[in-house]
């Protein structure tokens, strides 16, 4: 039954066995095409397994247009250095810590340092580990290291 497959999927995730997790997610999807949890698990497992191309193709071939994969899609596009497309995919997203961090990383690669620094300043109160590393990098690159 599908519950056993999810149990197996969960165990692989806990053990960081991401390629196995993808296989089990596919087994779920063969029984329950479009299962939202299975698709999400597959996409995240592929990203964790560093198979960005397949994560993106999984999102794009998803039969569930109601599921919002915009953040995952934007992240994959960022990893592929398709920065303008990544920005487009983020636009539909609610602004939160995750989308702001990704946006700042995209802006950094685009060389838009002032916009990048603005985001880091907004995130300062959020106490994100290692945020200051990226914040300082953007200030140095912008020639604003005295700040």
């Amino acid at each position: 039954p599908i519950e056993d497959l999810f149990d197996s999927l969960n165990k692989h995730i806990q053990r960081s066995e991401f390629e196995q997790a993808v296989k089990v997610a596919d087994q779920v999807l063969s029984i329950a095409p479009g299962d939202e949890d299975a698709i999400r698990c597959k996409v995240v497992a592929l990203i964790r397994a560093d198979d960005i191309d397949k994560a993106l193709s999984t999102i794009q071939s998803s039969q569930r247009p109601t599921v919002d994969f915009s953040f995952f899609k934007a992240y994959c596009l960022y990893r592929q250095n398709k920065l303008d497309e990544a920005v487009q995919s983020l636009k539909s997203q609610e602004r939160n810590i995750a989308t702001m961090l990704l946006e700042s990383q995209i802006l950094y690669r685009l060389g838009k340092m002032d916009a990048c620094i603005d985001i880091y300043q907004k995130l300062q109160k959020s106490k994100i580990e290692s945020l200051e590393i990226n914040s300082v990098a953007s200030l140095i690159t912008a020639g604003r290291s005295s700040e």
Binding site: F6, V44, Y75, L101, Q105, V136, A137
Partner: peptide, 21 residues
Amino acid sequence: NPIVLDLAYNFIDFPSLENRM
């Protein structure tokens, strides 16, 4: 240019499967 960490990666999370098992 200085190295920037991929902090967004930490927000790529699995869904909870609690109620699916």
